[in-house]
């Protein structure tokens, strides 16, 4: 049974969604990214989405773009991110870790080699925001062989035919994009989130697949997290975490602030009357 499956099951038993923070590897250095991962997990995060910095991240808003530029300026490479992944894996053997990566980073290295190295580094899945299933045949084949999930994004603009295709092809979980747009903190969640998630959920049931739904893009506050938790199996927080980290004058203070943010989000996930499970 995969780490994703085990973790979503555990959270389901606890009556809440899984909390999955996102951070860009190497922003501002790989050492700080590693500490940030540890802090998020200590604050109650259930899974990690680690981002590979990319020169041209066209699905990302200003916060994640800037994080990627800082990481690349600091010399972050794919090899170094794999080494970071391996260290995280050895320290947190049970925690599912997904790698967010744009397709060209994979393609350039060679799909088979990339997937094998990612699996060896302990990543459980790949999220490739510019690779719809239509173009993902070769990646899926090698990922299946390597035992690594391909986590597709499904968007509010996805038609019923697209949702059917994505559900049929997805593994690990489905990344439900909460809004029509790029990543970045927002003040409020889209009104259409509930009907959108209901459409996706109905299709997952119709295909009798065990494919949890995680919601990301724009999730910024404990209030957002609480609302999403009632609708989905997982909640992803990215830009808000990066903004929080960089809102402090030193990285050490940034880590503390991120710990507090994740802890408050984790608190918001608990069903009423249940104490925080450590």
């Amino acid at each position: 049974m995969s780490r994703f499956h085990q973790t979503f099951e555990k959270c389901r038993r606890e009556g809440r969604a899984a909390l999955m923070p996102y951070m860009t590897a190497g922003d501002p250095s790989l050492e700080w990214t590693e500490r940030l991962i540890d802090a998020c997990l200590a604050a109650g995060a259930d899974m990690i989405e680690l981002g590979m910095p990319y020169s041209d991240p066209l699905a990302d808003g200003p916060t994640v773009q800037a994080a990627g530029q800082r990481a690349l300026a600091a010399g972050t490479t794919i090899d170094a991110v794999f080494r970071l992944g391996a260290r995280v894996r050895s320290r947190h053997p049970e925690v599912p870790v997904a790698l967010l990566i744009y397709y060209n980073n994979i393609f350039r290295r060679g799909i088979e080699r990339f997937v094998n190295e990612a699996a060896a580094a302990g990543f459980d899945g790949l999220i490739v925001p510019d690779l719809p299933p239509d173009e993902a045949g070769p990646l899926e084949k090698h990922a299946r062989d390597a035992g690594i999930a391909i986590i597709y994004l499904v968007a509010p603009t996805s038609t019923p035919e697209r949702i059917r295709l994505i559900v049929s092809r997805g593994s690990g979980f489905l990344y439900c994009v909460s809004l029509t747009g790029v990543t970045g903190a927002r003040e409020r969640l889209a009104e259409s989130l509930e009907p959108f998630l209901a459409r996706v959920r109905a299709e997952v049931r119709a295909q009798r697949k065990d494919l949890p739904l995680a919601v990301g893009f724009g999730i910024s506050t404990p209030g957002h997290v609480a609302r999403v938790s009632r609708l989905a199996d997982g909640v992803i927080v990215g830009s808000a975490l990066i903004d929080t980290f960089h809102s402090r004058s030193t990285p050490a203070e940034g880590i503390e602030a991120c710990y507090s943010l994740i802890a408050s989000m984790r608190e918001a996930l608990n069903p009423p009357g249940v104490a925080v499970a450590e």
Partner: peptide, 13 residues
Amino acid sequence: GGRFIPETLIPAV
């Protein structure tokens, strides 16, 4: 060629 783009855009394309 192809279509290496976010899912959000696929229906529009």
